[in-house]
Design a protein around this nucleic acid. Structure first.
Length: 327
DNA sequence: AAACTCAGCAACCGCATCTTG
DNA sequence: TCAAGATGCGGTTGCTGAGTT
């Protein structure tokens, strides 16, 4: 349906930072309602605020809510965010449900200002969680960055040099990134999350003359030694890992490929036995950076020797690095 | 001390999805 | 079933303060 008009566009509605008086008015009004907000749209008038209802909701959910925990993120929280993001992508609200007292906005900001940069400096693509191709590593993965402690950076230097010397790795990485892009594209495509959409997509795919060659490529990808990174496998009570592994498992078997909606409830996804068979739409292949024909064959990847890292790098970050090479 | 740069974060915007009549 | 309204979500913007030149 079309977009509804928003009161935020009304002339005279205040925007910008909230004052203490406005905060107090909003909190007191919601307290009066017993903590229950009936209609956000009607709230500003009822609370005597010259604000958009949307703005009130945002202010409440991101700042004024009593159960919000502020302050720096702990290491555990940071690691959990990385694991969840690797499995879910930019599903900030879903990620926020796994961190007590943290809001989606706060996590998103923390990701963009801290974690993303940290991963980039380690030479890991923060979107795909795969190793960046060597030609994209401006300074050997940014290991001279102050974010990496000197001992860790020193330990990683020979590793990065070894990677840079692996000419075939670049191609292989691109191949895996292609797969990653495909999975992401499929998961972000709401049309294939419904049975009707799946059937329509199947019909579209089956009518395409290039399906066979594309599926051959996908099967080739499926028979490589791709494994779900361990840092995604070892998250207790998080079903998303199963979802991610499920995608991989599907590729390791013969067709049909099973597709899940990333927007779907994680638990619901994993408990639901009625999986819908699907094939990869040609349009998805066209949406990624590389042509399928550019990847005629695949060689198993060799994992560089990481033994030199054993004593110098935090096990979690070491695992992330190892996983980015492995995958 | 002033000007400039940049990181961090609160808040906004527009679209998607859900709810309701 | 459909349309309109309400809410949620994720990307983006812009302000602020700290650090640097």
């Amino acid at each position: 349906m079309g977009r509804s008009p928003c009161c935020c566009h009304d002339a005279g509605v205040k925007k910008g930072p909230w004052t203490e008086e406005e905060d107090r008015a909003l909190v007191e009004h919601i307290k009066k309602q017993g903590g229950h907000v009936g209609s956000w749209r009607g709230l500003p008038r009822a609370a005597g605020l010259n604000r958009c209802g949307k703005s009130c909701r945002l202010r409440w959910t991101n700042y004024l809510r009593p159960d919000i925990r502020r302050g720096n993120f702990s290491d555990d929280e940071e690691r959990l965010i990385i694991r969840l993001h690797a499995a879910l992508g930019n599903k900030w609200s879903t990620i926020a449900t796994h961190l007590d007292g943290r809001t989606d906005n706060e996590i998103k900001n923390y990701w963009n200002t801290h974690i993303k940069k940290k991963l980039l400096r380690m030479g890991i693509d923060p979107v795909t969680h795969q190793r960046l191709p060597p030609d994209l590593l401006a300074d050997g993965g940014g290991l001279a960055s102050p974010l990496l402690s000197p001992p860790g950076a020193a330990a990683l230097q020979p590793l990065l040099s070894a990677v840079a010397s692996l000419g075939s790795l670049d191609t292989a990485l691109r191949q895996f990134q292609l797969l990653q892009h495909l999975l992401n594209a499929i998961n972000s495509n709401s049309d294939v999350t419904t049975a009707a959409g799946l059937m329509a997509t199947n019909a579209m795919v089956n009518s395409s003359s290039n399906v066979a060659s594309f599926q051959e490529q996908m099967n080739a990808l499926a028979h490589t030694n791709y494994q779900l990174p361990a840092y995604l496998r070892d998250v207790p009570s998080f079903s998303g890992q199963d979802m991610a592994q499920e995608r991989i498992n599907c590729n390791n078997n013969t067709a049909p490929v099973l597709i899940r909606s990333s927007a779907e409830s994680v638990d619901q996804c994993c408990n639901d036995a009625a999986l819908v068979p699907e094939t990869y739409p040609q349009e998805v292949a066209a949406s990624v950076d590389w042509q399928v024909q550019d990847f005629p064959s695949l060689e198993p990847l060799e994992l560089p020797n990481l033994s030199s890292l054993e004593s110098d790098l935090d096990p979690f970050w070491k695992e992330i690095l190892e996983s980015s090479f492995r995958s």
